[in-house]
């Protein structure tokens, strides 16, 4: 079933004191691919800054730029319309590198033991689903205990975390099970913050699964980027000069048109 979704994503970075030499890479504009058609998308930057568009090796759209002048905030907003239709998803090539551990998804001894304690069903789709349940039964959703650099092993040891941690743990288990599985950043239907989930290569199709919400993804998900883990496709990454504290405010909304 095809759905048209309006999306709005807004990030404000505020610095206590002006910073300079601010270089950034954004991956916040959703790309079009079979199953997700971006009908229109607008990106606005404040302060107004020219940027270059590139695609990284995972095919993600990037907006790359630099603010050399002093500034005390960096604010970016992306909005537009997407048509999502999962029946249009097509078989794609495997990404063998997504079968191997990456920086965030190295299985600790504990994760390996947990994996071996699971009794997994026969078919690949059932196994992929069982692994999502295995994540859900070990993790408690708790904001604030983990951060952007938390690995799957650390989150597993803590037993709690947010969507990024659920996704990393899922990828770790799926790769132990021999699946090609990748990390996805994007927006789910609703209001709040951006979300992370996974895609698993099933019968040649990259199929979305959301271990945090315990469901296969549906037409309410808009994808920004993919990679081996969070490190390959952060929505925003930047460096700047300045001794200052930084605050971030995020807002997003996705709703039926």
């Amino acid at each position: 079933m095809s759905r048209r979704l309006n999306f709005f994503y807004d990030i404000r970075l505020e610095f206590d004191a002006p910073v300079v030499e601010h270089a950034f890479v954004l991956r916040c504009v959703p790309p079009s691919f079979p199953g997700q058609e971006i009908l229109d998308a607008t990106l606005e930057l404040d302060p107004h800054t020219p940027y270059t568009r590139q695609r990284d090796s995972f095919g993600n759209l990037m907006q790359i730029g630099r603010l050399s002048q002093p500034h005390d905030h960096f604010h970016y907003t992306v909005s537009g319309t997407a048509r999502v239709d999962l029946s249009l998803r097509r078989p794609e090539a495997d990404l063998p590198v997504c079968r191997y551990p990456s920086a965030y998804t190295v299985p600790s001894r504990d994760i390996q033991n947990y994996f071996h304690s699971l009794s997994l069903p026969q078919t690949p789709a059932e196994r992929a689903w069982a692994l999502s349940e295995a994540v859900g039964s070990r993790m408690r959703y708790t904001p604030g205990v983990t951060g952007p650099s938390t690995t799957a092993a650390q989150a597993f040891a803590a037993g709690e975390g947010v969507c990024q941690d659920y996704a990393h743990l899922y990828l770790t288990l799926a790769r132990l099970a021999g699946f090609s599985a990748r990390y996805v950043n994007g927006l789910p239907e609703g209001e709040g913050a951006s979300h992370a989930w996974c895609e698993i290569w099933l019968d040649g199709v990259w199929t979305g699964i959301d271990p945090t919400r315990g469901k296969w993804t549906d037409e309410g998900y808009i994808r920004f980027g993919t990679g081996r883990d969070f490190g390959d496709c952060p929505i925003e990454r930047g460096t700047f000069l300045g001794r200052t504290a930084q605050r971030q405010t995020v807002f997003m909304r996705v709703c039926q048109q």
């Binding site: 270089a23 890479v25 590139q54 990284d56 990037m62 790359i64 990454r237 930047g238 460096t239």
Partner: peptide, 22 residues
């Protein structure tokens, strides 16, 4: 390049990868 590789690197050149890629 801290924006492509190790984010904590202070001795790199931010966005060098974009110049190389181009």
């Amino acid at each position: 390049d801290p924006l492509t590789f190790e984010p904590q690197s202070l001795i790199g050149i931010p966005n060098l990868m974009s110049a190389y890629r181009s």
